[in-house]
């Protein structure tokens, strides 16, 4: 057992070494195009909070960029073999896109390019690129161009992440991130964190994640700021703390979170009428005459199948 764990640990460390090298190169390439991404979530946390980066596993690297830089990033990295999977699309549905490449050793490198911090409209503007950029901190272990969300922003994102993207599921690794991030804040920074959480209307979510961190890891939290977090009023984001949320709950919350009916209609269109390119790829059909003729039927099939999965509670 212990031998097997040691073997796995060495293998993961080797993969992490490859991923680190790739990320340093990617950031170098982007810097050459004057693109300054801000690293979010797993990758920067692994290199700033954990004794060995491989002890904080992460599958992809989250990069916050300006919306206007998305095409430039894709072009800059295409020479390195990065391609976007077909399923990516939808300005409101995803607010992000992915680029991937597989290196000569078979290790995949996946970059999630975000221009909003969340796919859920309620959280989409939790922190903007400009805010993250302004308070970003260098990550020397990831090269001269690596910058990560600042201490306070990183904690806000860590608290919101399981709730906004994973239906409030508790995973020890995320709670441990919150524990480590909260533990390094000074009392004054913690006050700023509480004020920001209040202003961005995620106070209850942050209070919940910090309470979890305290319960699981004994996180020491300043009493005053914690009390402040607990006194926040009703926030739209608290709906995401309910247990047993499903796909349609997320959809309703996202529709409510959008500012106008035009945006809501656009989101619905992106969900129910994805691009023909996506449909061809999803159904494995060539975009020839026969494929084009089949398209209406495929849309109907997809909708009926989705509805059926919803009825069966598989979605």
């Amino acid at each position: 057992m212990s031998r097997s764990l040691a073997r796995t640990s060495r293998a993961e460390t080797a993969v992490e070494l490859l991923r680190r090298r790739e990320l340093v190169t990617v950031l170098d390439v982007l810097a050459g195009h004057e693109i300054r991404p801000v690293l979010l979530k797993g990758a920067p946390l692994a290199y700033t909070l954990y004794p060995t980066p491989s002890s904080r596993p992460h599958d992809d690297v989250d990069l916050m960029i300006r919306r206007s830089d998305v095409e430039r990033v894709a072009n800059a990295l295409s020479a390195r073999g990065y391609i976007a999977p077909t399923y990516c699309g939808g300005e409101l549905l995803f607010c992000q896109t992915q680029l991937s490449r597989r290196d000569e050793f078979g290790v995949s490198h996946d970059l999630d390019l975000h221009w909003k911090v969340s796919t859920q409209s309620v959280f989409a503007d939790l922190l903007t690129y400009d805010e993250l950029d302004q308070d970003s901190e260098p990550v020397p272990a990831l090269g001269p161009h690596a910058r990560a969300a600042g201490r306070i922003h990183a904690l806000i994102v860590a608290c919101a992440h399981p709730v906004m993207h994973h239906r409030n599921v508790e995973r020890l690794i995320w709670t441990h991130d919150v524990h480590l991030l909260a533990s390094r804040l000074t009392a004054d920074e913690f006050r700023q964190f509480a004020l920001l959480a209040q202003a961005r209307r995620v106070g209850a979510i942050c209070a919940r994640q910090l309470a979890l961190a305290r319960a699981r890891f004994g996180t020491q939290l300043p009493i005053e700021a914690t009390a402040q977090l607990a006194t926040f009023g009703l926030e739209p984001s608290t709906a995401y703390l309910s247990t047993g949320r499903r796909w349609h709950n997320e959809l309703v919350s996202s529709l409510r979170g959008l500012p106008d009916w035009g945006s809501r209609m656009r989101l619905l269109r992106e969900i129910f009428l994805p691009s023909s390119r996506y449909m061809y790829a999803a159904y494995g059909i060539e975009p020839d005459d026969w494929g084009r003729a089949s398209l209406p039927g495929l849309y109907v099939h997809r909708t009926v199948r989705g509805a059926w999965r919803l009825v069966l509670a598989k979605k």
């Binding site: 640990s9 060495r10 293998a11 460390t13 070494l17 090298r21």
Partner: peptide
């Protein structure tokens, strides 16, 4: 070669071959 300490051990990775050693 890139390497990293790992709880008292070291993992060495040869980037030419992709082979790693402990």
């Amino acid at each position: 070669v890139v390497f990293r300490d790992l709880s008292g051990e070291t993992v060495l990775l040869n980037l030419d071959s992709g082979i790693y050693y402990g």
